[in-house]
């Protein structure tokens, strides 16, 4: 890795001014676990690295009954996983954060850094889209708020404009009627990066499903919302047959990646199988018996 200017702005306005000044020659560093790998492999060779670690204002987690959950971009995955408030009100998010990557990385890597790097083989974007998350972006032209699904644009590509920083992740207030499951699939238990990840949340209206969110990531260049399966589930009972039909729609709709860790056909198959199992589980059925 070659040397670079290492800059540590003490405030957000100073960080933004630095980025405006440096333009494309700078990389932003949060925890640095992913960025350093990219730099060591010479995929990235920035002249300057702007480290945000002094921006204390981006390191908090707050829960408010009307505003919902607010997570600063520099909150580490371990902090999300260990937060009693997140565990209590957003168990699906805490569970995801507790299993992402490995313990040492969870102690360094941040949720904002993860979202901005947009590596497809990761967990937070898929989970956050299914939880209706939004992100706040601050840049030279002011502040804007985007749905997470619109932020995760493509393979290693986000909606961030040059000079913009992601400052905050927002989740709506907890809805006790909504149930959810997040699942990550690994090629081997020793791997840290999922080959597919599935996030599912839905409202129960008596026996019937309403307003399902079904998002699949890691298998795809960016998380993909399974629109056909979601529409199919509306108003149905979660029977084993419903689960199988919705899973077949996932197989038809998903546009998977092919890479060294798995080809598209493999990823399509594991997405289908696991979607069926998760829906069956939420319906109270043991898929092992069917």
């Amino acid at each position: 890795m070659r040397d670079f200017r290492f800059l540590t702005p003490p405030t957000l306005p100073e960080a933004l001014a630095m980025l405006a000044d440096l333009g494309e020659d700078a990389c932003v560093m949060a925890g640095g676990t992913a960025l350093l790998l990219g730099m060591r492999q010479r995929m990235l060779s920035p002249d300057s690295v702007v480290s945000l670690h002094r921006l204390q204002a981006l390191k908090g987690i707050t829960v408010d009954p009307t505003q919902g959950l607010t997570i600063g971009a520099l909150v580490r995955h371990a902090d999300v996983a260990r937060s009693p408030e997140v565990q209590r009100h957003y168990p699906m998010l805490a569970d995801m954060a507790q299993r992402l990557a490995n313990p040492q990385v969870r102690n360094r890597a941040t949720i904002g850094g993860n979202l901005c790097y947009a590596d497809p083989a990761t967990d937070p974007p898929t989970c956050l889209i299914a939880l209706d998350a939004e992100v706040t972006l601050v840049g030279p032209d002011g502040t804007r708020r985007l749905a997470m699904r619109d932020f995760a644009v493509d393979y290693y590509t986000t909606a961030l404009e040059p000079g913009e920083l992601l400052t905050t992740i927002h989740l709506p207030p907890p809805d006790t009627m909504r149930v959810g499951l997040y699942r990550r699939l690994l090629r081997t238990p020793a791997e840290h990066r999922p080959v597919a990840s599935i996030a599912l949340t839905l409202l129960r209206n008596g026996d019937l499903v309403s307003d399902a969110r079904l998002v699949i990531g890691a298998a795809t260049p960016a998380p993909q919302t399974m629109i056909r399966a979601q529409a199919f589930l509306e108003g149905r009972r979660l029977t084993p047959d419903t689960a199988a039909e919705a899973a077949a729609l996932v197989a038809a709709e998903i546009a998977p990646l092919s890479d060294g860790r798995g080809d598209a056909a493999f990823r399509r198959q594991i997405a289908q199988v696991n979607t069926r199992r998760m829906l069956a589980e939420l319906g109270g059925h043991d898929w092992r018996l069917e």
């Binding site: 640095g32 350093l36 480290s51 670690h53 313990p103 040492q104 102690n107 360094r108």
Partner: peptide, 16 residues
């Protein structure tokens, strides 16, 4: 360990 948390020192700069 860094401030009490275990980390991988190959994924961390000395300046960090």
């Amino acid at each position: 360990t860094m401030d009490g948390d275990v980390v991988k020192s190959c994924l961390c700069l000395a300046v960090q």
